[in-house]
């Protein structure tokens, strides 16, 4: 009797040495990305977009100087973006280091705001495998709903795709119920071809989200790099039926840019992705700019920074 093995797209991808990712033409993808910025978003579409963007934010603090006090303040802001503006959503999650997960979890209890924790030796990822696993498990045990891991860029650039794949798969296992966001650190991968391949590896290895950047490397998220990743998510969906989330992080601090991203999402993946289950902005200062714009739309008056709390 011949043994019938199930050939999954992931296995095919791996067997092919991770060489099946389509190529990306830089000029073409940048032209396409620029095209989204030509959409003119006005009136109710704009208000809806600003609200949605707020609701998609992973409010983030990832500093050596982070303290419990700082995290608590941020969590309060996450739940109370602008109390003078009724009907505002909360952000999607707060994103902190593992050591702050417990604090954040407690502060956010009952709010529906998720706790995301970076792990696996953020931001460089240059830690032993065992440390990465225990880092992840620690965060999950402390109540993290989501884990933002970094891939081993060094290994990826060496062509050790199996290593990268296996590492992601093992972290996914360590996550248990927590959703896994895989940070590619696209600024270190440099070319769109590599971004596309890393996206595919991450998704086939079990990522629930793919994420551009740690925020510690320039360039962080850009529209073209996000477009490459959205394209990968779309192809993955048609290969597996699974919907993977997208998180551009770093460098998105203005409402106008956030709206451009949403237009891009809307026209590449469609409305199924237009929610914070499948799309996030990794950002800290974006929230206030969105609030300022919302107030401007509401009052018709241009706003000043001092009227919005900076937590």
């Amino acid at each position: 009797m011949a043994v019938k093995t199930t050939v999954t797209p992931g296995l095919i991808f791996r067997q092919a040495g991770f060489n099946l990712s389509p190529r990306v033409d830089q000029v073409g993808i940048e032209e396409r990305a620029a095209r989204f910025t030509k959409r003119s978003i006005k009136k109710e579409t704009k208000v809806n977009g600003l609200m949605l963007a707020l609701n998609m934010i992973d409010l983030t603090t990832l500093e050596g100087k982070d303290s419990e006090g700082k995290v608590k303040q941020m969590c309060y802001k996450a739940m109370h973006l602008l109390d003078t503006y009724p009907g505002l959503p909360t952000v999607a999650a707060v994103c902190v280091y593992p050591s702050m997960v417990k604090t954040a979890k407690k502060a956010l209890e009952g709010s529906g705001v998720k706790v995301a924790s970076v792990a696996t030796g953020f931001p460089s990822g240059q830690e032993p495998h065992s440390v990465k696993i225990s880092d992840t498990k620690f965060a999950v045990q402390n109540g993290a709903d989501e884990i933002d891991m970094v891939i081993s860029r060094g290994k990826f650039l060496e062509g050790e795709y199996n290593f990268v794949f296996d590492e992601i798969a093992s972290i996914k296992e360590a996550c248990g119920e927590a959703r896994l966001k895989v940070i590619l650190e696209t600024g270190e991968l440099v070319t769109y071809d590599k971004v596309r391949r890393a996206s595919d590896i991450a998704m086939y290895a079990g990522a629930d989200f793919i994420k551009t950047s740690t925020g510690k490397v320039t360039p962080a998220a850009t529209m073209p790099v996000t477009l490459v990743m959205l394209g990968a998510i779309r192809d993955f969906y048609f290969s597996t039926g699974k919907k993977i989330g997208m998180k551009p992080a770093g460098g998105i601090s203005k409402s106008k840019l956030a709206l451009h991203y949403l237009v891009m999402l809307n026209e590449i993946l469609g409305e199924d992705w237009m929610n914070n289950h499948l799309f996030r902005f990794g950002a800290s200062s974006l929230a206030n700019d969105l609030l300022m714009q919302l107030m401007k739309e509401k009052t018709g008056v241009y706003q000043g920074k001092d009227y919005f709390s900076i937590d």
Partner: peptide, 10 residues
Amino acid sequence: LKFDSARKYA
């Protein structure tokens, strides 16, 4: 994929 909203900008 659903694009019903994609054409409905103000």
